[in-house]
C-alpha cells in the first residue's frame, strides 16, 4: 500500500495547463495526453512527493490532483 497522485481527468481537461508535468522531479511520471488535454500519472513511477498537488492546488487553485492510496496490483 502506498501513496500516489491521481489526476481528476474531467476537471483537469478544462484548463489545458500542464504545470504539474513541468514541476515533477520524476521523469515521465506525470505525462500529458494531448487528445484529451489532460495530465495523467503513471502510478508505478510516482514517489508521492505531492509537488504536483502543491502546484495545482496551492499555486493555481485548481484542485485537479489528489493523493490516493493504492494496493500492489492495482
Amino acid at each position: 500500500m502506498y501513496f500516489v497522485a491521481k489526476v481528476k481527468e474531467d476537471e483537469c481537461a478544462k484548463y489545458n495547463c500542464k504545470q504539474c508535468v513541468l514541476f515533477c522531479p520524476e521523469p515521465n511520471c506525470i505525462n500529458f495526453l494531448e487528445k484529451k488535454g489532460t495530465a495523467w500519472v503513471w502510478p508505478d513511477k510516482c514517489k508521492g512527493c505531492e509537488i504536483c498537488v502543491y502546484v495545482c492546488s496551492d499555486l493555481l487553485k485548481r484542485n485537479c490532483i489528489e493523493m490516493v492510496m493504492v494496493q500492489a496490483g492495482d
Binding site: P25, P27, N28, F32, A39, K45
Partner: peptide, 21 residues
C-alpha cells in the same frame, strides 16, 4: 515535457528531491 520519452529513467533519488528535478 510529458509528451516525449525522456532520456533519464527511474532513479533512486528521494521523493520530492529538487536535484532530481
Amino acid at each position: 515535457l510529458g509528451q516525449f520519452k525522456e532520456l533519464v529513467e527511474d532513479h533512486p533519488m528521494c521523493a520530492g528531491c529538487y536535484m532530481a528535478y
